[in-house]
């Protein structure tokens, strides 16, 4: 327990230090959103309609840019050896690494969302559903992403490969997440169903991804 807490605290600290992944992720998120807004043109009604899907897609991409650092940095400086030799259950350690990624990437993106939503003319009743769907869905993104990071830890410059691996796995979360945000904004009855399915997808990855990450890390030790 002490070790897991220390791993989370260290990873979050590193993410906010120089060279860490948090600030670039938030900046990238803002850039995607602004570019989308510029490309969509000055039609404000169109903009408020596509605001939530834009933010969901932006969050999807922004969580990816720091994924390859989750395990690679630790492998390169030898910390991964310490982490692996001291961890009683490697799957729990993998869960802690994913949690740290979410705290340092997913959470800042959610905090940045209201500001970017103003830019996209999101309707006021759509804020809560959008934020709630991100809160439930983004942990799943970090979990899937950390699995892809574990899978590719031994490969140099795996960033693009990681994106290719995670993108199809992200699809259910994207569909239910953006669906929940849209249904919630419109007051549609599918809101609860979408949120439940989104929660189910995240919980499913929370069980599978750490175990799969541990197996991937072990097979990549050689």
């Amino acid at each position: 327990m002490r070790g897991l807490r220390a791993i989370i605290a260290r990873d979050v600290t590193l993410a906010f230090r120089a060279g860490g992944g948090s600030l670039p992720a938030v900046a990238f998120f803002a850039v995607i959103t602004v570019l989308f807004a510029l490309a969509a043109g000055p039609d404000l009604t169109l903009m408020s309609k596509i605001a939530a899907p834009i933010i969901w897609t932006g969050a999807l991409f922004a969580t990816q840019i720091s994924l390859d650092q989750i395990y690679r940095a630790d492998r390169e400086d030898g910390s991964l050896d310490v982490i692996v030799t001291t961890s009683g259950e490697l799957a729990l350690t993998a869960a802690a690494k994913a949690a740290a990624h979410w705290l340092s990437t997913g959470l800042p993106l959610i905090l940045a969302t209201p500001v970017l939503a103003i830019l996209l003319n999101l309707e006021s009743e759509a804020y809560l559903p959008l934020l709630l769907s991100l809160l439930i869905g983004t942990p799943g993104l970090s979990l899937i992403g950390s699995f892809a990071a574990a899978l590719t830890v031994a490969l140099p410059r795996a960033n693009l490969l990681i994106s290719i691996i995670v993108s199809p796995l992200y699809i259910p979360i994207l569909i239910f997440g953006a669906g929940a945000a849209a249904a919630g904004a419109a007051g549609a009855p599918q809101y609860a169903a979408n949120l439940s399915l989104l929660g189910a997808a995240t919980l499913f990855t929370a069980v599978i991804a750490p175990i799969a990450s541990a197996a991937a890390l072990r097979s990549n030790m050689d």
Binding site: R10, L14, R17, G19, G20, D77, G78, S79, D81, S87
Partner: peptide
Amino acid sequence: SASLIYCGPQNAAKAAL
């Protein structure tokens, strides 16, 4: 895990800490 320690050629220390 409670009985052995491996100290490799890298130092397992984070430069930013």
